[in-house]
Amino acid sequence: MNSVILQLAAKYLKWLFIVFAVLALIRGHNSPGGGFIGGLMAGLAIVYNGFAYDTFRIKERLQNFPEWLIAGGLFVIVLSFFPSLLLGETIMSGVWLKISLPLVGELKLGSPLLFDIGVFFTVIGVTLMFIFSLTQKR
């Protein structure tokens, strides 16, 4: 497809997608959102770009990128197991760290968030892999 409107829209919309994806990721724990939904949105940003230009070209440019994303995401997931292990609790227990920041207010960081970030990257990678595996040269 070669549509100027779509291409122009994609240029700006993809950042909007990514911003919302990160938002969904961060608010995830007790509210709607989370790593999976955020990941799908962020993956869509790239896919949308691909629809506007040429998915195959993007596939060629990104090459092994999806696999790296998956590997990195899974690695972060494994990292998120360690805080609970180091504290001697059951594996995968949530460990929370509360930080008070001057402007933002109280920030809750924890191993579930780390887990979500891992899921986020894995899902982006998987989405891209899905789309790319069904793409062919035009």
Binding site: W68, I70, A71, L74, F75, V78, F81, L85, T90, I91
Partner: peptide, 20 residues
């Protein structure tokens, strides 16, 4: 007791290693 989870975790870590 974490031993029980290891049969799942070891292959998981290996998959990551081999992907990288």
């Amino acid at each position: 007791i974490t031993l029980v989870a290891l049969p799942i975790l070891i292959p998981f870590v290996l998959i990551i290693g081999m992907l990288v």
